[in-house]
Nucleic acid binder design. Structure first.
Lengths: 145, 145
DNA sequence: CATATATTGAGAATGATTCACAATCGCAAT
DNA sequence: ATTGCGATTGTGAATCATTCTCAATATATG
């Protein structure tokens, strides 16, 4: 059993909810990729798989996944709602160019210790963190002149 | 003239667009607060001010503000689209409880040095950064048992 | 196996966002 | 100041995503 499956079934059991085949199928599809997803394309992917799960079921599942900390709402560059799941990647961070939208990923393990201390002081048990830095990339800076 | 006004008028001029009274009013309202905003509540605030600007005008302005780097799309806890503007606050960060949604703000100047080094290596000129830590707060952890 | 509750799909209802269009506006060139 | 032209606006209609309703199933429990 995958880690995400264990976490989600525990969450469901805690609230007397059930782990239905539909929910299992949707989760499998979500966690089969690391990419962000939106409802429509997730629904398409499920249909390609041969599933006839309705969009309503997806919409109904999402709040549970958010609540349980499996996914989180995000937004694409144009502000459209997407979701990203929180398993299977080690924390990675982003440099985002405000001018051209380019995104550079980086890792920064050194930050973890600092943040652990902050969490401790505030009674938080962290399970994920993200750093986003906004600025202007070298190419755009050159172009500006 | 405010910094944001200078930046936006420059952006408009560059594309032969005009800085109309409506746009000025909307910008003033957006930058009069540090909070995130959504279209509906921004529209309400404008009406309270006595303005009759239509929502369509707001919707039409937003892509320009995003493009010009004045605001950025964000998302509230439930995934609803909001925007935050990018002027005038010192960097602050968030601990977010995945269970109950509580948000604790903190500051962490020590991170800045680490991030400056990352930026330098990648040729970025940063002007803002945000750290989001997701976890479970003390109250929710207690309740879980 | 019977019961109570949760879940589902379909389609209707809602609400947010975009579009179309006719009436203004603002700027630049006279 | 006047004219001309593209940009901008408000209105209301159209579209699109999301939520809701309801009747039919499925699931867990005793």
């Amino acid at each position: 059993m995958k880690k995400w499956e264990a976490q989600f079934t525990a969450y469901l059991k805690d609230r007397s909810l059930t782990y239905t085949p539909e929910r299992k199928t949707i989760l499998e599809e979500i966690f089969s990729s690391h990419d962000h997803f939106d409802v429509e394309s997730l629904h398409d992917r499920l249909r390609e798989r041969g599933s006839r799960i309705s969009v309503a079921t997806i919409y109904r599942l999402i709040p549970l996944l958010v609540e349980s900390g499996m996914i989180r709402p995000a937004t694409d560059r144009r502000g459209r709602p997407t979701y990203e799941h929180l398993f299977g990647h080690r924390p990675h961070h982003h440099l985002i160019c405000s001018r051209c939208g380019k995104v550079v990923e980086f890792r920064l393990d050194a930050a973890e210790k600092l943040l652990d201390r902050v969490c401790e002081r505030n009674g938080f048990s962290p399970f994920d963190y993200r750093i986003g830095v906004r600025g202007v990339c070298a190419a755009c800076r050159r172009e500006e002149r």
